[in-house]
Amino acid sequence: MTTDEEAFRSWAARAQQDLLRTAFLLTGDRHRAEDLVQEALAKVALRWRRLRDGNPTGYARQVVVRDNISGWRKRRREVLGTDPGRGGPGTQVRDHAPATERRIALDAALAALTPRQRAVVVLRYYDDLTERAAAEALGVSVGTVKSQAHLALARLREAAPELAELLGEEV
């Protein structure tokens, strides 16, 4: 194995879980997230010599986001739904820790966002990117990131008022 291959494998092993988390939060679908990460890692591998001394993780994140955007454009009429394993209205959750209940509510609230709003929320608040970095990853202006974040947070407040503490607000 060459030094470049070793360096790529080492980077990929470190970056894969963070990329998978981002992709899952963007899509809400584990299988789609895994596909997006695999495609991103393949694209980074092809450009490794150019990327290794720069920011390969930022490039990979951008590939994940943009490939996901391409996916929504192809399936524009598809509506984000809930996972059948989570149950629907009227399903009772028994003996779950409050953190688990909060996570389920958060997943449902994220599913209520538009794909662009969801991408902005994930990049800004889960991946802790700056507005500029999120704008670059999405290929939009900083103003678009700000407006989409504002709309997304308003929609989250409406969809899941019980999550106000996660938004840093008083209940």
Rank of each mutant, 00 (worst) to 15 (best):
E158K: 07
R155P: 05
Q148T: 03
L151Q: 14
R30G: 08
A7L: 11
G88W: 07
A99W: 10
R132L: 12
D4K: 05
A137H: 02
V171W: 14
E39H: 07
W11H: 00
Q62N: 10
A7Q: 09
T114S: 11
K74P: 00
L41Q: 03
Q92P: 13
Y59E: 04
E136L: 10
G143L: 05
P161T: 03
A152C: 01
A152S: 06
A45N: 04
L51V: 05
T82H: 09
E165S: 15
R73L: 14
R66G: 05
R30Y: 12
V145A: 01
R157C: 02
G168R: 02
T2C: 11
P161H: 06
I104E: 13
L80N: 02
R50K: 07
R9L: 13
A152H: 05
R52G: 01
T100D: 15
T114M: 02
A112E: 07
Q148P: 00
M1K: 11
L123P: 01
V64L: 06
T144E: 07
V37M: 04
E101V: 14
L25M: 09
D127M: 08
S141I: 06
R50D: 07
R124G: 00
R9G: 13
H96V: 15
A154N: 13
R76I: 11
K74F: 00
F8K: 07
R9K: 15
Y125S: 08
R86N: 10
V171A: 15
H96G: 12
D107A: 11
Q117K: 06
V171P: 15
A23Y: 03
R94E: 15
R47E: 05
A112I: 00
A42Q: 12
T114L: 00
V171R: 15
Y126M: 08
F8V: 03
A119C: 06
A108E: 10
L167G: 08
A40P: 02
L26D: 05
T114A: 06
L80G: 06
E78K: 04
K146F: 08
P56V: 07
D18R: 12
R116C: 05
E165N: 12
N55K: 13
R32A: 11
R49S: 08
F24D: 01
E170H: 12
F8Q: 01
R61K: 12
E39D: 13
L167H: 00
E78W: 09
T82E: 09
D128P: 02
G54C: 08
L123S: 02
I69S: 11
G168L: 03
D107C: 03
E169L: 11
D127R: 08
L153T: 09
R52F: 03
L46W: 02
D35P: 01
